[in-house]
Amino acid sequence: MPIANDNIAIVGAGQSGLTAAHAALEQGLRPMLLEASDRAAGSWPRYYDSLALFSPARYSSLPGMAFGGDPERYPRRDEVVAYLERYAAALVERGAELRAGARVEAVLPAGEPGASGFLVRLADGQELTAPAVIAASGSFGRPHRPALPGLDTFTGPVLHVAGYRCPASLPGEHVVVVGAGNSAVQVAYELAAERRVTLASREPIRFVAQRPLGRDLHFWFRLAGFDRLPLARAEAPPGSPVLDDGRYRRALREGRYTRRAMFTRLEGDHAVWPDGERERVDAVLLATGYRPNLPYLTDLGALDDGGHPRQRRGLSVTHPGLGYLGLEWQRTPSSNALRGVGADAAYVVGMLARHLRGAPQRAGERS
């Protein structure tokens, strides 16, 4: 496949990749979506069964297609999956190419050193070339498992929330959930209906009212412009607040689940708490976040030693023509959310389009 000046390869067909394809079509480019799974919905089909969006439908639409239904409802996982599949079908009708089951194994320079463009090698051996690539594969495939003392020798099951679907995913009577963010609290609350649950975290849980003064928090974000603040003015907070309609804080207060400071170590099937108490634990669930899942860029030299992309505002600082979408706090507080990825996609794709047309690409340029 020869390099075409208006072609752009997008790795991943979840919310970030689909939004990138929309922005590419708006720029007159020909997007090719490469999705490792068998459907264009990213990681959403693999999230836990009870997951619901933290933002109402009215704020959760991608560019060019309304979510539909009651704008004040909080869509659940399967609704999001169906929406993303409708969005992908509309993109294909407009001329985007979607390849499902196309796992990208490596992105490499196309041609001699110094030449422009990229070679994209798929797991089945196919090789494609494109003058621009957007890495939009998210982070779900790289769950973060912290080095907690005794975790590797704990005799019970240890499961990351990426592998959790419902309470039946975990055995036993006493589950320790590690974390203090939205997923940790949501899952702890769900498990507490039939188990004894301890939430272990380094910092106390920070609850934030989901609907202050009767309006969803995102209404106030939009009014104040918080979601559009550049990172220079809105740095990432030390811990994620938990959006709460009242039930999570109330359940904690009533003792349906408990919160303790992080255990000092695990010993066999016991946790040792900071006060010295030893307590039997049947299972551990890690709600400890994710890291960018970009192994296919390793040989390109686009990542640092920790596997994080060398980028600024979603544009590679090592390889012109390479962009990123869906990174946490990439440009704004909502960069990796349905409600915010559209603005990032318009910026990143716009800058890559300039690069393809011969205009200078400057990672720090604002738009």
Rank of each mutant, 00 (worst) to 15 (best):
V175K: 04
R265F: 02
D78I: 07
E254I: 07
R250T: 13
L34D: 02
V348Y: 00
T129E: 13
D269S: 15
V133G: 05
R280Q: 14
D6V: 08
Q361M: 15
T318R: 15
R339G: 09
A359M: 14
V177F: 04
V107R: 07
I8A: 01
G289V: 02
A40K: 05
Q15Y: 14
E190H: 07
H22L: 10
A236C: 09
G340C: 01
D244Q: 02
R94T: 09
R202P: 07
G64C: 06
R265P: 00
P309H: 04
L119G: 10
P113Q: 10
L84Q: 05
G276Y: 04
D244A: 06
R260A: 05
E112F: 12
L303T: 00
P157C: 00
R58G: 02
I205A: 07
E72N: 14
F154W: 09
D244E: 08
P295F: 07
R233C: 09
R215P: 01
Q210S: 15
D344T: 02
Y83C: 06
P31W: 02
G340P: 00
V317D: 09
G342L: 01
V92A: 14
A100D: 08
Y296D: 04
F221Q: 07
V161G: 02
D299L: 15
E26Q: 14
R202T: 10
A13N: 08
D245L: 15
G179F: 07
L33T: 07
G323P: 00
S334Q: 08
A110V: 12
A343C: 11
R211E: 11
R121C: 11
L53D: 01
Y248K: 14
T332K: 06
Y48P: 00
E93G: 05
A188F: 09
A52N: 14
G323T: 03
L51V: 11
L122G: 04
S50Y: 13
L29F: 07
D299G: 15
N7C: 14
F226P: 05
Q15A: 15
A343D: 13
R310G: 03
G239K: 15
S367Y: 13
H218D: 09
R312M: 12
C166I: 07
A343L: 15
R103K: 14
Y347C: 12
P146N: 12
A20G: 12
N7M: 13
P149E: 06
L119Y: 02
R331W: 05
Q27H: 13
P113D: 06
H270M: 15
A52W: 13
G114L: 08
L25C: 05
R211V: 09
A82P: 10
F263R: 09
S61L: 02
P360F: 12
M32N: 13
G163A: 06
A363G: 10
E105A: 14
A115Q: 14
V133D: 10
V185E: 01
A302R: 03
A346N: 08
A90Y: 05
Y74S: 08
V197C: 02
R76F: 07
E173Y: 06
R354V: 11
G68Y: 03
S55P: 05
D216I: 00
A36D: 09
V175P: 00
L191H: 11
